[in-house]
Design a protein around this nucleic acid. Structure first.
Lengths: 250, 250
DNA sequence: TAAATTTGTCTATTGATATAGACAACTATA
DNA sequence: TATAGTTGTCTATATCAATAGACAAATTTA
């Protein structure tokens, strides 16, 4: 049995992160980068325990957490096997579109409109859209799903005057691009993207179906028309264990 | 005392991540996004304990960890104050350069060459550089520092035949750009960047001076000459609590 | 079929994490 | 100079995390 795929070190005691959680993260990472393909067998519990210098029960704790998450499947007498697949690669470039970006990687993908509202623009939204602070903006809360699993959770803001009714269009079409087309926007470009990462908070855990301790990638972006008018300000969260971002020059 | 800057929820019990570590992360995040500026006073311990629904001792645990990290300073009778500053914004675009990218954000920045070696190209390095697998490549291990704090940790691979001696050039100049110039490369472009995030492992903790549980942003990138020849394959790690990545179109 | 391998379950013990309460030490302010 | 507000320290207790060992249950292999 080849065990070399899981890095041996990186287990820290008294760190505030339990050993079983650290080991679970290592297994998740190994799967995410493709070191374990679907249906591959994990090394046996005793081997993992020895590798990380912990008790077998601690390894079992990590594995049972991943079994609960639906990442692994344990079979008594046989072994423990990988269920989930490699990370999706989500492209970010001048023309970043949800559906086309994941083409070829998933058999199915769509955006669900979770909620929408009209609200006064906060400081950063106003700055991003080039509006006065407090101007009315429409907020769309959406979740991206691919093959039935959540892969993104986003909030998008649009100038309310110009895009009145975009919430209905979004509910109907399930596509930002198609919704914007109804307002005469045939093309738009990604002007700026700021990227960060943090631990998932309670909302992320619920929205993206994650377990506590998971990491989310966060992008804050502005989309503009080809002549430079800002039309959309957005903040998106991606589960780092399921998605990587592929930055394409353009 | 204004307490609204720290989000109230997101504290998960029995998650494998201790409450004090979760609270420490929240405080770090609030500082990182600029909700607490330098020298600002944190809410008093009792207020934080009430806000998160935990015991005061648990909050004290979180704070003392951040004091050890050099992020906070506690003064008996007065309060607890913020030492560290806002996250650096590291630009990534067609022409991604370490030093120029941080201009204006730091008074000082430089790259340290930690180690170099010649090795056969692994699968992914060979693919990235367009070489046969196993071809000799030079690996440069570097750390980027700004105002005395580590902000990046990178491994870069170059074709050994073409760039023999680039390790010496790097040690001398402290600049990838300057080193490449000695080989007649006056300009180079970022061809591709793949971005992910994970928990820091033991090596990251040591190299980037982080505490267990910290998050690192990871970029895997290929640089090419203007006519498209791959010259450098690199993997860089950034501490998410100190750096955000600003993706610039171009 | 027997032996080896692997996951599942149980008991017991130790150390880290979290709660609870009380009070000391220090600072700023009325 | 009191008083209120804040951090620092101590004791005690309960719960979670991790270790240790033993054996059962299921599967594969010799």
């Amino acid at each position: 049995m080849k065990v070399g795929q899981l890095s041996a070190d990186g287990i820290e005691r008294r760190s505030g992160v339990s050993l079983w959680r650290q080991i679970a993260d290592k297994i998740l990472h190994a799967i995410a980068i493709g070191d374990f393909t679907e249906n591959a067998a994990l090394p046996p519990e005793v081997a993992l325990a020895e590798r990380y210098g912990v008790n077998r029960h601690t390894v079992r704790n990590a594995i049972s957490a991943l079994v609960r998450e639906g990442v692994l499947r344990a079979e008594q007498g046989r072994g423990t096997f990988v269920l989930s697949r490699k990370r999706l690669s989500y492209p970010i470039g001048a023309r970043t579109r949800f559906s086309t970006g994941l083409q070829g990687q998933t058999t199915e993908r769509h955006i669900v409109l979770l909620a929408s509202s009209v609200e006064p623009a906060s400081q950063r939204v106003a700055e991003g859209l080039g509006l006065p602070k407090g101007a009315d903006v429409i907020r769309l809360e959406t979740r991206g799903e691919a093959d039935g699993r959540p892969v993104s959770r986003a909030a998008g803001w649009f100038e309310a005057r110009r895009f009145a009714g975009i919430d209905a269009a979004m509910a109907e079409t399930g596509s930002i691009t198609a919704s914007l087309a109804r307002f005469g926007i045939d093309d738009y470009l990604r002007q700026s993207t700021v990227l960060s990462a943090r631990h998932a908070d309670a909302a992320d855990l619920a929205d993206l179906d994650l377990q506590p301790g998971a990491i989310v990638l966060v992008t804050v972006a502005v989309n503009v028309t080809p002549d430079g008018q800002p039309i959309q300000f957005s903040e998106s969260r991606f589960p780092a264990e399921r998605v990587e971002l592929k930055l394409s020059a353009l």
